[in-house]
Design a protein around this nucleic acid. Structure first.
Lengths: 196, 196
DNA sequence: GCATCGATGTGCACATTGGGCAATTTTGCT
DNA sequence: AGCAAAATTGCCCAATGTGCACATCGATGC
C-alpha cells in the first residue's frame, strides 16, 4: 500500500513534467515549475528522477500489469507465437501506443529526450519478455524466446517510427491515423509464421 | 577535412571519458578530468556532448561507413534477406559488438548510462536501415524493410543482452565468449526465412 | 492502543553542470 | 597572403544533482 503512495507521487510529477513539455516545450520550464504544479518539493523530484527528461519519458511506461490475467485465458500448450500475438494485442493497447507515439514525436523536437524515451521502451520490453519467457517454459530452444520477442518488438517500434515519418513537417498528429495497429500485427505475424 | 578534425576531438573526448569510467567508475570523475586527459577545455566538451554519459556511450558508435563498398560486391537483384545477412556480417563486425557489449555491461553497473547507450544503438540502427532501404528500392511492400530490419536488429540486441546475463555475478567479461556471432546470425536468418 | 522501525518527503548547502556570449585560433578556399 | 566560416576557449551564472539531517507517515509487534 505504501508503494501505491510512492507511485502516485511519481506519476504526479511525471504527468506535470509531461504537460509542461506540451505547453512550453522542454526548455521552457525548470524542475521548480514541475514540483510547484504537482505540489511537491524540488528535493523529492530528485528522489524519483535524475532529470527533467527522465520524468517526461516515464509517463509512457504503461506497465505490463497482470500476467496471470492474460495467461489464465490461454491454453497452456498454445504455440508461443500465438501467445505472443495475444500479449501484443492485449498488453500493448492502442492507448499505450498513442502515448508512446506522442513521446516519440516529442523526442524528435527535443533530442535530449530521446535516450530517455528509449530507456522506457527498454524497460517495457524487459517486463514483457520475462512474461513471455515464463510461459514458454522449456518447450523451445533457449534462443527462441529472446529471438522471437526481439523480432516482434523491433518490428513494432520500427513501424511506430514509420508513422512519425509520414506526417512530418507540420506539428505532430497525436492520433496515429496512419497506422492500423491490429492489422499491422496480423501482417507482422504472418511474415514471422511463414518466413520473409 | 574539417569534419575530420571535429570528429577527432569528439573521439578523443569520448575515449577519455570511456577509459575514466573503466578506471574509476562513472561517478569517480568529473568532466574536468575528462578534458584534462584529452587536452581540451571544459567548454569544448559541452560543444560536443551534453553530459558525461553521452560521451561515454558514443565510443560504441562504429559508423556504418562505406555503403558503396558493400553494395558493389552484391548482385542488384539479390533477395533483401540475403543482402541484410551480408550487411550484418560485414558491418556489425565482432569488434564493434565487443565494444558495444562492454558498454552494455557498464550500463548495468551505472543505470544513468543506459539511456545513452540505447541512444547510440538507435542511431546505428537508423544508419543501417537507411542503407538497407536504398538497396530495397521498390521491390518490396513499404512495410517490409522496417519490419525485417526491426526484427533482425531486435533479435541481435536481445541476443547480445543474453550474453550479459549468463556470466553475471562476477566482473563482466569483455570478450563475448558465450556467443558465436556468425552461427547466431545463421540461426536467426533460418528462422526468418522459414518461419518460427 | 501504543511504541518502534523503516521508508518517504522536505529543507539546506554546495559542488557540478549546461549553455549564452564574445573573443581567439584554426581551417578551407581563392 | 587574405578572407570567411567554423572550432575552440574563457567567463559567467542559472539550473541541476546529491549528501546530510530531520520530520512525517505507514507498517509491524507488543
Amino acid at each position: 500500500m505504501r508503494d501505491l503512495k510512492r507511485e502516485a507521487t511519481r506519476e504526479a510529477l511525471a504527468k506535470a513534467a509531461f504537460e509542461l513539455t506540451r505547453e512550453r516545450g522542454l526548455s521552457g520550464f525548470v524542475t521548480a515549475d514541475v514540483v510547484e504544479r504537482a505540489g511537491y518539493s524540488r528535493r523529492t523530484f530528485g528522489n524519483h528522477f535524475s532529470c527533467k527528461e527522465e520524468a517526461v519519458a516515464s509517463v509512457a511506461f504503461g506497465g505490463v500489469d497482470d500476467a496471470s490475467a492474460i495467461l489464465a485465458g490461454l491454453p497452456a500448450d498454445l504455440p508461443l507465437l500465438d501467445v505472443l500475438l495475444a500479449v501484443m494485442k492485449t498488453q500493448f493497447t492502442t492507448d499505450a501506443l498513442v502515448r508512446m507515439r506522442e513521446l516519440m514525436a516529442m523526442a524528435r523536437r527535443y533530442p535530449t529526450l530521446e535516450p530517455h524515451v528509449l530507456g522506457v521502451q527498454q524497460r517495457m520490453r524487459h517486463t514483457a519478455q520475462e512474461l513471455l519467457g515464463s510461459v514458454a517454459g522449456d518447450r523451445y530452444p533457449t534462443v527462441y524466446v529472446p529471438l522471437l520477442f526481439g523480432a516482434v518488438y523491433g518490428a513494432v517500434m520500427a513501424a511506430l517510427e514509420g508513422t512519425l515519418d509520414v506526417d512530418l513537417g507540420g506539428e505532430y498528429d497525436p492520433s496515429p491515423a496512419s497506422m492500423d495497429y491490429s492489422s499491422f500485427l496480423d501482417i507482422t505475424f504472418d511474415y514471422l509464421r511463414h518466413g520473409f
